[in-house]
Nucleic acid binder design. Structure first.
Lengths: 231, 231
DNA sequence: TGTATTTTTCTTGTCGACAAGAAAAATTCT
DNA sequence: AGAATTTTTCTTGTCGACAAGAAAAATACA
């Protein structure tokens, strides 16, 4: 029996496969911001024609993960460090809103999902696996947003969490991937207030958690600015 | 010299043309929610191959304007009347946030753009042109969001305004397209507080304006519910 | 006559090929 | 040799064709 890498795949599954894989590679910074994306190279790699590759790229472009210059190259989107504050503004507000709505509208099964991701997150921290930690952190908050049952907020929040994955990756890389226990406890606290349906507390915790992270990341970038000046 | 409808078009422009046109037809309810979308028919209509048509469709699907069943038909997205409240929640919050940010961060040239759309809006109301009024209303608020200079909020708000175009279309259709002067004055008030950089007032006006509209639309749908029961 | 099964038709997903535009390389001219 | 121009190469955008899957139609069967 043949055991090739991708001998046959179902009709219509190719696009999703390419999309998912490229997305993860971008968000884990395996593909650096600014890296060129070559259609034929991808077609080679995935053993399929350019058509499904292109479709996946159009989707990624729609989410702002890649940028395409007409008739010219397409590349992984850069991180807009100059306007990080707009990112942080949106992030904090969405942390608040989604945690608040989750406290209001969650159902029992939502809590189960949230707790599962929480455990995965805790495990990743324990194992000092930065990539897994960052990814499950996003999944954890995304699950909270889903429990709030507002698809408009969920989709924006998910987009922000995606962008956050790249930024957090940079952040932890600069600390040699030392992962703190602190956020595990904060997440637990967040679950508790959601389960208790304490809306105001959820809002407060959501805000504090968000501002916590924002402050940390900002500290990193101001530090880097100073280093740049010293050089 | 030949004067055909679409004899030649620039390379790369086809996708945008199809995308823009389909988008407008969907948002103006010229294509009813649930209508089937046929690729070959569109290819015929625009005198191009299915490839660029498909790309436009992928983009529209990414924005939730159409839905595609794998290996089966693709159709214009339905309006989710059962969960309208999630739409209204997001809309009110984004009205507040974008108006507030515009008061903070707008530049002189932003005000000029906003005023231009305001005048177009007023003209459409005067002419009792419902479609133009609805479209320029969205453009007006979108311009305010742009003045706030937060692309994350802008993009969510734009999506909400799009969905709002379809809902407003239904709303005004049910009133035989009688357009009120009221919102013209409210828009003027909104411009004034933004120009004055009065952040708190902007927040308040944004919220009032949004809740105004939401209440009106909700009245329509509760009225319809009652009618349904009476039948 | 109503239901199950096969056949046909139709739509979508994928492919390989070609053309257009841009970048890179080679050539010409000063 | 250095700059401008032409040629080549490379990547993307578009096309027509084919294959796979699903719906519709036609047929067989109870």
């Amino acid at each position: 029996m043949d055991d090739n890498a991708v001998p046959e795949r179902k009709r219509g599954s190719g696009v999703k496969m390419v999309y998912d894989l490229l997305r993860d590679e971008i968000l884990d910074l395996k593909l650096a911001p600014g890296s060129p994306i070559d259609e034929v190279q991808l077609a080679d790699r995935f053993k399929m024609s350019r058509t499904p590759i292109r479709e996946a790229l159009v989707r990624l472009a729609g989410e702002g993960l890649i940028e395409t210059l007409p008739n010219r190259s397409t590349m992984v989107s850069n991180i807009d460090f100059l306007n990080l504050h707009t990112f942080f503004d949106a992030l904090v507000l969405m942390y608040r809103v989604t945690t608040r709505l989750a406290a209001q509208y969650h159902r029992p099964e939502d809590l189960a999902t949230i707790r599962t991701y929480h455990e995965e997150y805790a495990a990743a921290v324990k194992a000092q696996d930065a990539l897994a930690m960052i990814a499950t952190n996003a999944a954890f908050h995304s699950a909270i947003a889903d429990a709030g049952r507002n698809p408009y907020f969920s989709s924006l929040f998910r987009r922000l969490l995606d962008e956050g994955r790249r930024i957090l990756r940079l952040y932890y890389q600069s600390y040699e991937d030392q992962l703190p226990q602190r956020f595990v406890d904060e997440h637990q606290e967040m679950i508790d207030v959601i389960a208790a349906r304490d809306v105001e507390a959820a809002d407060r915790i959501g805000r504090e958690h968000a501002e916590q992270i924002v402050a940390q990341v900002q500290r990193l970038f101001t530090r880097n600015e100073r280093l740049d000046i010293q050089l």
